[in-house]
Design a protein around this nucleic acid. Structure first.
Lengths: 122, 122
DNA sequence: CTAATTGTTATACCTAGAATATAACAACCA
DNA sequence: TGGTTGTTATATTCTAGGTATAACAATTAG
């Protein structure tokens, strides 16, 4: 798993980490049932504190992307709840779409971006 | 202009404010060339500090949504730069799409959400 | 059995950002 | 002239992010 953190970004490290894990799962670099590195190991390789990685893992567990097993560590286990996922996605999307409309982006242009990203990420 | 702030949200007030102004412009509640309330007036009506509103206005100006005129205040003036807008949108969208793919959302389902939101916001 | 590693929790500390509170400035307008 | 505009400056409080140790029970490897 290739993780790259931008320490000069205004985005929190644990958020960057979370997003990269999203992308790794989406692109099947990590698959359902496979284990992620231990919090200490990953923290060591990317050069951050153990608790920063733990926070990323904890939020991923809470949002239904991981399950933590004593013997296997953090295992990818997606909790599929389409209704909730759609609602969350809609809430996240709303201000972005509004921003795009203000900037004159058309419905088709935005959906082309979705197509591009969907291809890039799966 | 109807602004509603959730003081218990983990989202910064100036970000909520920015997003609601996006939505107000997208839905034509405020139109190109029209003025927004003064920083002091808006701060007073929603019950926050003047600088919080000023920060929202400043970022909107910097991102090309407003222009500030001494005599007319903050005026809606969209700086259209489609290439930059598309790139920004793509960067914002990427982790969201990745998250959706992980949760099993299909390309069509995501584009339906875009359709719904585009209708809702224009 | 022992030693090392696992996730987890707790505590303490530092820093940066968010928000508030005043205050002042020049420019504008009634 | 007096009030309002956007803007800037300074100071304070509070919270979140990140780091640093430390300890715990459970598991695993030697």
């Amino acid at each position: 798993m290739y993780i790259e953190i931008d320490f000069n970004s205004d985005e929190a490290i644990y958020v960057q980490l979370r997003n990269q894990i999203f992308m790794a799962i989406a692109t099947s670099q990590i698959k359902e049932g496979e284990s992620l590195p231990s919090v200490r190991a990953l923290a060591d390789t990317i050069g951050v504190n153990m608790h920063t990685v733990n926070k990323a893992y904890s939020t991923l567990r809470q949002d239904g992307f991981l399950k933590v097993d004593r013997r296997r560590g953090a295992v990818v286990a997606i909790d599929i709840d389409k209704l909730t996922s759609m609602e969350k996605m809609k809430a996240y999307l709303r201000p972005l779409i509004a921003r795009g409309i203000c900037k004159g982006l058309t419905q088709e242009e935005i959906k082309e971006l979705v197509d591009d990203l969907y291809d890039e990420l799966s």
